[in-house]
Design a protein around this nucleic acid. Sequence first.
DNA 1: TTGGAATGTCAACAAGACTGACGTAAACTG
DNA 2: CAGTTTACGTCAGTCTTGTTGACATTCCAA
Lengths: 167, 167
Amino acid sequence: MAEGGQGGGEALLFLTDEQLRKGIEAMFFAYRGFTADPDRILEKHGFGRAHHRAIHFIGRSPGTSVNNLLAILGVTKQSLNRVLRALIEAGLVESRVGRRDKRERHLHLTPAGEALERELSDAQRARMRAAYRAAGAQAVAGFRTVLEAMMDGEQRRQYLALREASP
Amino acid sequence: MAEGGQGGGEALLFLTDEQLRKGIEAMFFAYRGFTADPDRILEKHGFGRAHHRAIHFIGRSPGTSVNNLLAILGVTKQSLNRVLRALIEAGLVESRVGRRDKRERHLHLTPAGEALERELSDAQRARMRAAYRAAGAQAVAGFRTVLEAMMDGEQRRQYLALREASP
DNA sequence: TTGGAATGTCAACAAGACTGACGTAAACTG
DNA sequence: CAGTTTACGTCAGTCTTGTTGACATTCCAA
């Protein structure tokens, strides 16, 4: 179908409500699959999704400040703080007082934190890899394109900022 | 087009960890965008995401049983019951005793429930439509293909079952 | 130097998930 | 027909993760 060439075929785009609804439901079910593996691992360690998100983005941007993490995660600082405290107590995250600005705390994963990060992202990558393989390269490109278009402006800005960091 | 993605280029599929990570982060940020509009509407009415999910799937499959809804949503009956009770009290959902099997309750949206369902799904469809338009037809196909591949087997079964209902 | 802004912490609360136990009515089964 | 299973509802208690509000510390600029 849609051999419209990479022109992409705006012309072929018949968007019935039913098709849109399928997209919505696909997001719902796929997101559950997307979080299923990490959830199982986290439970073993007594953590939840909030901890996963913190670990992910600290691992992604070592030395990030609490405020920066706050902006990415879109939660209140009090909520993040609880999560962070648990991770620091468990010895997975280290919080270093800023050298230039002592109000800031710079966050890093400890070796144990890196190990859990790897365990979590290995699982998630394995699922993503399988899905990508099953779908093919063109599908993958389309997948990313639609997801980016679905973000709010601010979210897309943050997403692309992460992208820059490691192109 | 799913199979082997013919032009799709399995050959072109270089799945670096970095690329996979981008896909993971895209899911994270896109899902936030995906739920942002409904969340705003729900707040006005004093409901949450859990209510949205129930409303969506009742609207999708009118007359569905509690047990069926339970399976789709993947929560406990206690959790669903709290949500359902609120929706029934608010006059958005009606629970009818089954005719054939009187143990069952068949769930329907009232006119008010349908109105809220429409308000919610209009918002969500508008975003989905904009994303689809921006991405093009091929991207849309790829998007759905990858999402389906990302589901667990049971989830995919349920997703496709909904699909059948209205092809 | 002093007051405001930024950063982070502690405390209390709410939503929404969970488990476990129990009750009722209807349907099924030997 | 008696006993078991199924479908649903409810009460009670816990956990995670979000929320506000109040407060301490640090920096910076008037």
